[in-house]
Nucleic acid binder design. Structure first.
Lengths: 355, 355
DNA sequence: TTGTACGCGTTATCAC
DNA sequence: GTGATAACGCGTACAA
């Protein structure tokens, strides 16, 4: 049997001090230099390591923030997790990440597990639990929401300003000269939001939306829904609800011999890592995942006293690459910039959506 | 001030039982049906939730396995984490994931943090700490290694059978008729391993390797190193040490007007999510990340009694897509299969490397 | 079957 | 400055 880990008692004995003094020395309390010295030596000699479990029991705080995330495979959520760790690390805290695969039941269990572990806070990404349930499940612990699926809640929340992102896309396409623009919408809440924003932005510009197709937020979803968009001979541009659908559309277009961007402009949403490596490189809207994570972490750590400015909106950036160009039967396009940029250009952030 | 969480004492009082009985009831011990009933009601009434911190203190086990991973942005490590969670979840345990961004210093800190939290085991992915240091840092807790960077250790370990993967690539290219094959190697340990395996496989087939170029394991690394490969007019195929470099090479080739696979075949390694969406879709070697994670988790939970079969080797699969084809000045290629497959084909796993 | 009482390793509150 | 000592919430001998 391995010799059990040294405890604070062992250190105290070895250093000829009381455990109280050792505890103070370890936590930066007032201790005479001599004692501190002996204690440090004892710690080094024994290889003592503080037991954070015992510490958590007495202090009532664990230095742990629970993070519930749909999955970690897609880069977006991973970046949010990274952002959360950024701010926790700065405070000597840590994240405990649990995935729920978008299943409410798994989300419920995750909250239970994390609460049982006495986390100091909870960050829920893409949560879909009803507010009342969330409130009882969370009990006393601070909660912050990121990109929640569902109606407004009383919890502090960060989300992407989808409306601003969509507006930037529409403005970009219109400035290129496109007049009949289709949309490939995802079935989730954010998909619907983007579609509505799309229609609204178009109407504001005095245009009627082209074909509006709904499908899954996946590559296959994009590919299978593609015909319903491509059959409309007048459509010169398609805005996809996310990058994954855009890839499916791109493939479907290629199979039909439709050249992008010459015959058709395509825009995505998210700016996944690989969007720039597609052929053609995808024009899309970049989600500031890491920053969303950072603000969410700050929101759990210091919950806003009053419920002002909920949800916080983070503005995305339009990333123009080579999947967009003036429409073939151009002419109107000549009014805008001279030529499409040869390399990647990031449009300045737009105004946050007024609320 | 919020009413503090109910404890096992509260439940005991409410149910008119002792805490021992409550504890037994909660942990599936022997309790009279009547008592169990009253206790369950009390639990529901009070909304009692077990405090895993206190429980961990007394049992000495936390049900937590610490996972140290280079990063979570790339899908490969995320999949490994997923695999680890698969087997932990089945046992009611959980993973605490910490990223080290490939910095030994951060890895050291991560081990400290996780040990202080009394994890029941440690899975280190891509670890580069020397064995002796690892051993003292880990203290008594079980350790499993995945894709460790550095020489063989006494710890249980899983790794990909790189040699088998590379052999499959070389066999594929040779069967297509390629005779002069270049290689783009990554600077890390696995990069060197793959390069050596590449040279060996080629020699076994009676061929001399084409140009061997070393660079970073990134898209830029692939792009900047590309000229040194492409300037060799005789090279008809290039095997890249990973998918990210392959993307860089693909772009560089396109810029030079080199058609893939018509003028040049390109093979990657890893099969990242997006490899199939490249143009042309990338032929590559699929890493079974999730399965690597699963076996690693099993290794920590039940450490092998004797040090047999270390490291465990997992066999990758060759995924043939459209970035490989017979060389332009073919003829020799006509001996193989009739035509390149129109769609994705997964070659059967090859023999594990003999040891 | 049930209850009492001790201990897990630490912090915090007191006196000294 | 320092040292006893009482919690923290729970599991588990052991006795009843």
């Amino acid at each position: 049997m391995p010799p059990r880990n040294p405890t604070i008692h062992d250190v105290a004995r070895e250093a000829g001090a009381s455990i109280a003094t050792v505890s103070r020395a370890l936590n930066g309390g007032v201790v005479s230099p001599a004692a501190r010295d002996r204690i440090e030596q004892a710690v080094a000699l024994l290889g003592y390591r503080r037991n954070d479990v015992a510490r958590g029991l007495v202090t009532g705080r664990t230095g742990l923030v629970g993070v519930i995330v749909p999955d970690l495979i897609g880069p977006l959520y991973a970046q949010m997790a990274r952002g959360i760790e950024d701010v926790l690390e700065a405070r000597g805290m840590h994240a405990m990440v649990v995935t729920d695969h978008r299943e409410p039941e798994a989300e419920r269990r995750a909250v239970e597990v994390l609460r049982a572990r006495q986390v100091d806070g909870l960050v829920l990404i893409g949560s879909s639990l009803p507010e009342t349930e969330l409130r009882t499940a969370a009990g006393g612990v601070p909660v912050a929401l990121v990109q929640r699926e569902g109606p407004q809640t009383g919890f502090p929340e960060v989300r992407l300003d989808d409306v601003a992102g969509v507006r930037a896309v529409v403005a970009h396409l219109i400035s290129l000269g496109h007049r009949r623009i289709g949309h490939l919408a995802g079935r989730r809440r954010d998909g619907v939001e983007r579609r509505d924003a799309f229609v609204a932005a178009l109407r504001t510009a005095g245009l009627e939306p082209g074909p509006l197709v709904e499908s899954d937020f996946t590559e296959d979803g994009g590919a299978t829904a593609a015909p319903r968009l491509l059959d409309d001979g007048d459509v010169t541009a398609v805005f996809c609800g996310n990058d994954r659908m855009a890839v499916g559309l791109l493939h479907a277009a290629a199979n039909r011999g439709i050249a992008v961007p010459h015959d058709l402009s395509v825009v995505g949403f998210d700016d996944l890592t690989w969007a720039r490596y597609l052929t053609p490189a995808l024009t899309t809207v970049r989600q500031p995942g890491r920053e969303l994570g950072r603000t969410a972490a700050r929101l759990v750590l210091v919950p806003p006293t009053d419920a002002v400015a909920t949800p916080l909106l983070r503005t995305p950036e339009l990333v123009v690459r080579s999947s967009t160009a003036p429409p073939r039967a151009a002419g109107a396009a000549r009014t805008g910039a001279a030529a499409p940029p040869a390399e990647e250009v990031i449009a300045p952030p737009h105004e946050p959506t007024p609320r």
